[in-house]
Structure formats: structure tokens, C-alpha cells
Design a protein around this nucleic acid. Structure first.
Lengths: 334, 334
DNA sequence: TTGTAGGCGTTATCAT
DNA sequence: ATGATAACGCCTACAA
């Protein structure tokens, strides 16, 4: 691989001049520029980005940590981040945190050890306090789907409360009064907020919250199955069910159908996230759209703006979910 | 951030000695090692990996290109690759090729520009010839789900023909004789091989291949819908349908149900890939398992072995698919 | 076992 | 506008 030195020799100019044309910072006369460009072409020169990084103290790569690489939700998130960063010529280094405290710490260290210019992370286990400490370091850290107290400007999040509200409210609108709820793990702020939204919708329609119609799941398919099973066992009547994410909704649907419950006639179900396969379910799932692709893009823009000084970028820190109406809700009015 | 120089000063030894303990290559006396380690701890020293890369001509990062980041198939692939590489302390730089020739070229260039020690790529549009040329460069390239003529040792692939055979054969076993087939794009070798397997199973049971029961789809949901629609319009009878991947199977199922076809009683369906949501479909999809996670891991191992000289690693270049029997196939014998 | 010194390929600060 | 030259932080013969 040709080096900048060889280019300078062939072009008959100094190293500095070659460097100037690759970075076209300073003015170079058209004549010398052409000489340099030609020499580069002839030698098929490609700057060594490692050397550039060392000299400039910029790696032009940003670290991304998500809970898992498979799974439709994180796929969308990654895709949004990568698209935006790639277009800006920044490299994405990726790793997983698996929602576990030690793994998340390790992952961050791992990313930091590669001299990333910034981190974009989706963290579930680590505390706000830890994250604030982390941000003291010399690598700025940005947070997806989380609002860290005191670091709001580094966060991109969704209005989960509103989402929870919308899910329940559409059911009430269709005449449902006994609405069961399968929540996500309540130590997670987003799970909590969705549940809050659910209760607000109930309250708004003067429906008392019934603890017997509540189950705390795990955001997995199994959580949905266990949830509906437990709910059914209580022998209370409910005509509708909100699941705090689509995977649990899928699990609940499967279980319900296997136990002879007709969907949506005998039970209406609403999910959350609008992951791709929610539209492949039967019946097609009515759910709350989580614009995670756009949010990923936004996190990337935030980095481009703050770290790489692309100042004209417009940042939205807080996104609003929307209801996607499909076939899994039946009206009690028809 | 403390440098190796400061550590050496604090420990009262030379730069070289410090370097030796971080890389614990050469022998260092326990006493000096302790001094150095202590100094490192005191200064919270972390080697600058960029500088290491420059000096050693090893970036310890490997570039990965997949068609897309979302989508369950690539998620699994990435996960397998990342897990293995992460455990080996190697960084994964990721990008997408979108199955388009120019994007794939760009993606490769992008990765190469970051001085990756190796590339693992899933390429669909670029020709074997191009890839052979690519491999002449000084960065070794490894291929997922593809067998490049002349570079077999750099490839990890699946026996797609066998998979196609298994899918059709299980249907025949259950008494189906009119088996329709929705293929993937035939310019893709894996689509072609799966179709070959289908025909072999037919032939083995002395069933003539009927072009009217064939449709070429796009591996997307829409392909499944269009496929079954077209098939149905021909007014030929078929009791079973093989789709060359699960997404098309999902599309076909949705369409069938919307047109009053009872699944699986009136139509048996088999998919391919065994992506996560195939078990959430209704009925749960019988499909051919594509061990893509393991294959991702294997590609990573291949890199570890060839590039980082972890010689004891055992490599399998060619994986066998297996049939996953679920609920979408009905027997004609009962 | 430990130290010295040159080199990795750039960028950036001065001069000119 | 262009050129010298010192960093950047580390690795690695080669010496001692």
C-alpha cells in the first residue's frame, strides 16, 4: 500500500501538501492539487485511517451497544444508526450488553478501548448514577430509549406513557371495560411508563384498575403465555388485553387460540412496538408504533452534531408513538 | 489518559518493559512486572489501541457486511459472528450492502478503508470474479452463505439443495402429490439449489414437475402473496406448498386465509430458514432450519484461525439443514 | 531480564 | 501556497 510519502515524492511536493489535499482544509493551488491527485491515482493511494486517527486524535468510529443483535426491535435501531453514520463516513463498532449489568459494563469498556469518538448505547441494567459517572470520561455517551436524569440532552427516548395510554384507550373506545394488562418488567422505566399510561386511560373513563387483571411479564413470548394463563385462572371476565410489547402479545395469542378462545371476537388484543412480524400474526396485531428506526437515526444525528460539529442538524429528544390499527381488536358496539 | 511513557516513568522502567507486560509476550521478572502493573493501576492506564494498531499493523477489528441489519436472518448471523469475535477481543465493524452491486462495492471499500484485519461478508450482487479479485488484495475476505469458486476455503455455506429436498420430501411423506413451489430469485445460487432439491424429491417419488405449480418470488412477504395468488389463478389443484423462505410462507399463509383456505387442512405449507417468528405464525410453521447463528460463529472462527493463528480451531465449511416439524402440514393419510 | 532507538503513516505547527 | 519537522502512542529488533 502506497504511503503519503511516496505520493509526495511522485508529485514532487511535501508531505504536508499531500495531507492538505486529502483533507482539503487549507488552500492548495489548482496546479499542485492536480499533481497530487494524479500521483494518488497512479499509486492507488488510500490514506491509512489508523495513522490518521493517531495523529488527529479522531477515530471516526463510534461504538454502539445494544442488548442483542437478533430481535426485530434492535435490528431496526441498529439500521437507523448505521444508515445515518455510514452516510457521514463514520464507522460503527458494535457490541452487545445482554441487559446484564456486568456484560453492559464490559461492553462499554470494550468499546472505549477502541478509542471511539462517541458511544450510542441501549442500557437496561446499569444505573443512572453509573451512567452519569461514565459520561464524565472523555468519550461522550448517548442513550437510546432511556432518559438519564441530568443527561437529558444525551438521550433519545419515546413517550412510553402516551403509548400505554393509546393502547388501552383504543380498546375502551370500542366499548371494552374489562381490560387486562400484561406488563413488562417493572424495574425498567419504559415498562413502568407504559403501565402508567394504561392506568391513565382507565381512570379517564372511570374504570377502576383491577389488580386481578394485571400480570408482570418479561417482554418475551413466554411472558405473554404465562400472563394470559394466570389471568384466565383468576376466572375474572375480561374482553380485552393489552400487552406491553408485541412479543408477549404473540405469546398470549398463541396460548389463547390453543385454549379455544376466538380472536378477536372473544378477546381483543393490543401490542406495543410494531415490530415487523406483528403484521404477520393472525389476526394482524393492532399495536403502538415505536419509531425506533427514526430514533436510531436521531441518535446518530445527535452524535454528528455534538461530536463532529454538524451544527445545522435538528434534534428531537422525545418521540411520540402512534396507534396502528389492524385486526386484533373487535368492537363491542357492532 | 495516561500513556505508556508515564507508566514507565512511575514504575521506573523503560517503555519496552511496559509494552512487554501489556502484551506479556516476553519474559519479565515478577518483581518488575508487579511494579509495572501497580503503576498501570495507579494511573488507570489503558493502552491506546490506535497506536497499537499503527505500530503492529494489526487493527484487531474485522469488518462485517450483511445485506441489512434488520430482518431476523441477518440478526442471527451478526449475533453469531459478534459473540465469537467479542470473546476473542476483536472488534466488529459493521455495514450493509443492501444486495445491490454498487452498495456492496462501497461497503467493502468502506470497511477496507478502516484497515480491518479481515472481512466477513454476505454478498448477493457481486460476481464470483469480482470476489476473487477482491481476495487478491492484502485483506483476506470470508464469505457467508456463499461458495465462491476457487475460494471454497474462505466460505461458510449451507447445503441448500438438501434443505429444498427435505421440505418437499416431508410433504410427500404425508401423502401430498400436488406440491406447489414458490422459489426465491433464481439468480441467487441458494434459491437455485433449494429448487433443485425440490425437484429431486419430486423425482424420487416419480412425481412430474409441473411448471404451473411454480412461481418465482422475491424472498419477501409480498412474493408469497403474489405467488399463491398466481398459483391459485391457474386453477390447478395442489394440496401443499413449499416456500423457499419463511417470509414468503408467511405472506402466502395470510393470503390463503384471507381467501377462505383452511390451514393446514386444505393447504399444507413448509417454509425455509426457521427464523424466529416462524413459530409465532398460525399455524406454527413447519420449516427447514438454517443454522445461521452457528454459521456466523464458524465464519468468525475461520478468521480467528487464519488471521490470528488460533490453529486448534476446527472448521466446518458446509452445514446441513434439518427439518423442523410443527403444525402447518397436515397428513393425507389420517 | 531490561533498555535504546527507530519506525508505523498521518496531522499540525511553525516557518518561509 | 508550500515545506520542515515535531508530535501521536506504541511495538520491536537490537544491544547491553
Amino acid at each position: 500500500m502506497a504511503t503519503i510519502y511516496e505520493v509526495s515524492k511522485l508529485a514532487g511536493v511535501s508531505l504536508a501538501t499531500v495531507s492538505r489535499v486529502t483533507n482539503n482544509n487549507t488552500r492548495v493551488s489548482d496546479k499542485t492539487r492536480k499533481k497530487v491527485v494524479d500521483a494518488m491515482a497512479e499509486l492507488a493511494y488510500r490514506p491509512n485511517s489508523i495513522a490518521q486517527s493517531l495523529a488527529s486524535n479522531r477515530s471516526n468510529s463510534i461504538g454502539v451497544m445494544v442488548s442483542e443483535l437478533n430481535g426485530p426491535f434492535f435490528g431496526q435501531m441498529m439500521a437507523g444508526i448505521e444508515k445515518e453514520l455510514r452516510e457521514a463516513g463514520k464507522h460503527v463498532i458494535i457490541t452487545t450488553g445482554q441487559s446484564k449489568e456486568d456484560k453492559e459494563k464490559d461492553g462499554i469498556e470494550f468499546l472505549l478501548s477502541r478509542n471511539c469518538d462517541a458511544l450510542i448505547v441501549h442500557i437496561e441494567a446499569l444505573s443512572d448514577e453509573y451512567l452519569r459517572g461514565l459520561n464524565e470520561g472523555d468519550t461522550p455517551v448517548y442513550f437510546m430509549s432511556r432518559t438519564v436524569e441530568g443527561l437529558q440532552n444525551n438521550c433519545i427516548n419515546l413517550n412510553n406513557e402516551l403509548g400505554g395510554y393509546l393502547a388501552t384507550q383504543t380498546l375502551i373506545e370500542q366499548g371494552h371495560k374489562q381490560v387486562a394488562y400484561i406488563a413488562g418488567p417493572q424495574f425498567k422505566p419504559d415498562s413502568k411508563d407504559r403501565f402508567l399510561g394504561h392506568k391513565r386511560a382507565l381512570k379517564e373513563s372511570n374504570i377502576a384498575f383491577d389488580p386481578d387483571l394485571y400480570f408482570e411479564g418479561d417482554f418475551k413470548c413466554a411472558g405473554g403465555q404465562n400472563g394470559i394463563k394466570s389471568l384466565l385462572n383468576k376466572r375474572k371476565i375480561f374482553s380485552a388485553l393489552v400487552c406491553a410489547n408485541d412479543e408477549m402479545a404473540s405469546g398470549a395469542m398463541t396460548f389463547a387460540r390453543e385454549h379455544g378462545i376466538k380472536l378477536p371476537e372473544e378477546l381483543s388484543i393490543v401490542g406495543f412496538d410494531n415490530i415487523i412480524f406483528s403484521q404477520h400474526l393472525y389476526p394482524k396485531l393492532t399495536t403502538v408504533d415505536y419509531p425506533v428506526f427514526e430514533m436510531g437515526q436521531m441518535a446518530a444525528k445527535l452524535v454528528l452534531k455534538n461530536v463532529y460539529h454538524q451544527n445545522k442538524l435538528q434534534i428531537t429528544h422525545f418521540f411520540e408513538p402512534t396507534l396502528i390499527t389492524r385486526d386484533s381488536v373487535s368492537s363491542l358496539y357492532k
